[in-house]
Design a protein around this nucleic acid. Structure first.
Lengths: 112, 112
DNA sequence: GTTGACACATAGCTAAACATAGTATAGATT
DNA sequence: AATCTATACTATGTTTAGCTATGTGTCAAC
């Protein structure tokens, strides 16, 4: 996927993944890749800072766990995060609808 | 509409508007606002630099016209711009489909 | 003992949307 | 006459957020 498409929509993706249950960062990356059919193959440098930002904003909580010698930081949605997910879903729907209205008006270059 | 949602999708919008015929910057802003039902009310500081960027990239051509004492720079799609519009439409579809796949998996906070 | 998957962190770059301000004309309002 | 509003473009600077790059460390496999 071309790079900057998900600008501004990454938070929604992360919140949506975590709405299905608490996960650690690496697992979130995996699941994003799988659910999107490889479309979203996000680098760690994208996801980890975003998770930190969301936690700082109060949308996520986290705790350290240790699994077979490997430390993991497991994130889960807060109440506020659940609310934000709902809002961002609505915003996403509004956005795509506005996009379609604009795109619908335009002539298709490939179809005469 | 919340500001930064269209990050990375503005070019597609501009190309789509211009696919219906040549227009000058201010008219593009107007039509974007109308077609989107006020959702996209973009400031000039967003649109004009984007038009310059698209022209610099070879996707648009422009010429000065004078209408009732007011100078206008009228933009039109180049052949390359028409191609880019097609590509970006496909990319947009892929993007929204990937988003829905991720969002579909997630539990809705409002619906039990 | 080196490679590769797992798992996290962060300093710094960059692009792009946006804020802000400035220039200038035309027409309506005061 | 003066001011305001809409029209129309330009330039400068800020900010945000995704990404690159790099570093740390564990474990299993080869």
């Amino acid at each position: 996927m071309r790079g900057q498409a998900l600008k501004g929509h990454l938070d929604l993706l992360l919140l949506a993944i975590l709405a299905d249950g608490a996960r650690h960062g690496y697992a979130i990356i995996d699941e994003l890749r799988e659910r999107s059919d490889e479309a979203f193959d996000l680098p760690e440098g994208t996801v980890y800072p975003a998770l930190h930002r969301l936690q700082k904003g109060g949308f996520l909580s986290s705790e350290w766990t240790e699994v077979q010698g490997r430390r993991r930081r497991t994130y889960r949605l807060t109440e506020q995060g659940r609310g934000a997910l709902g809002e961002q879903r609505v915003a996403w729907n509004n956005f795509t609808e506005a996009m379609s209205r604009v795109l619908k008006g335009a002539a298709w270059p490939d179809t005469p």
